[in-house]
Simulated assay, not measured.
Amino acid sequence: MIASLDLAEILEETDRLTQLILRSEEVKHYRICKQRLQQDEEAQKLIKRFVQKKEQYEEVERFGRFHPDYDRIKKEMRQLKRELDLNESVANFKKAERKLEAILIEISEKIAYAVSDTIKVPTGNPFFDQLGCGGGGCSGGCGSCGNH
């Protein structure tokens, strides 16, 4: 019974934390950027073209350089990606998304490390997550991350 009460209290605190996060300026900014991106016709056309080109790329990538259209589609994909990255709505959304992600990772780290400093926390960076070192993924054992 005591464990159930503790769990209920933890869940209540989690709900409070969630509400604080949802009311934060970063979430508000993220939502504004997302809405602007969704309403930006040029950005939506670019996204649609990019998704189509990505599907083509995945198809030819199965054969790699042996596919006759591999180099052309790869080049077109890079060009579309660059256009997307330079689009103001896309760039603003990605920036807001990265900032919010960093905050959520920091919160996750604080919670995890309050339990134990050897808990691995996904950082969103596959390089560090695979190593189990660096950023939030540090397990404390490698010594190269400088966190321990």
Rank of each mutant, 00 (worst) to 15 (best):
A8P: 01
G136A: 15
F63M: 08
S24F: 00
D129V: 00
C142V: 10
S24P: 00
L11E: 14
G124Q: 10
I73T: 11
G134I: 02
N147I: 15
N87F: 03
Q38N: 09
A102T: 02
R36L: 10
E101N: 14
I47D: 05
R23A: 13
L80G: 02
R36W: 08
R36N: 12
M1D: 14
L46C: 02
P126E: 03
I119V: 15
Y57N: 13
E55L: 08
G146Y: 08
P122S: 01
I73S: 08
Y70E: 09
I111D: 09
D129Y: 00
K53Y: 10
F66C: 06
E58F: 06
I2S: 10
V115C: 07
T123D: 14
I111F: 06
F93P: 03
T123R: 00
I111L: 13
N147Y: 14
P68L: 01
R78I: 11
A91R: 13
R31G: 03
P122R: 06
G136D: 14
A112N: 07
F127Y: 11
G134T: 08
Q19C: 03
G124Y: 06
E58T: 05
L20E: 04
I105G: 08
K120D: 12
L37M: 12
P68Y: 01
R78Y: 09
E26N: 00
S139D: 15
A8S: 10
I105S: 08
N125P: 07
Q38T: 05
G143P: 06
E25L: 06
L104Q: 05
N92L: 03
I105D: 14
N92F: 01
S24D: 04
N125Q: 06
I111P: 06
N92H: 04
D129I: 00
E9W: 12
C133V: 08
G141L: 15
R72C: 02
I32G: 03
R23G: 09
L80W: 05
L80A: 02
A112I: 03
K48A: 10
G136F: 13
Y57C: 07
I107W: 01
T14E: 08
S108T: 11
E58Y: 10
L17A: 13
K45D: 15
F93H: 09
Q79Y: 13
V121A: 06
G143E: 04
Q38S: 15
R78N: 10
K95P: 02
E55Q: 13
A3E: 15
R65L: 01
M77G: 08
L131P: 05
Y57T: 07
I111S: 01
P126C: 07
E109F: 02
R23K: 14
I119K: 12
L80I: 00
C145W: 09
Y113N: 15
G140L: 11
E101P: 01
G140R: 12
D85L: 02
E88F: 02
G135D: 12
I103P: 08
E109M: 15
V121R: 13
S139F: 00
E42T: 11
R98L: 12
L80F: 00
L84P: 03
G140H: 07
G146Q: 11
D85K: 10
K48L: 13
V27H: 00
E26V: 01
E12I: 05
D129N: 00
N147H: 15
D117C: 14
E76S: 09
G124S: 03
P122E: 11
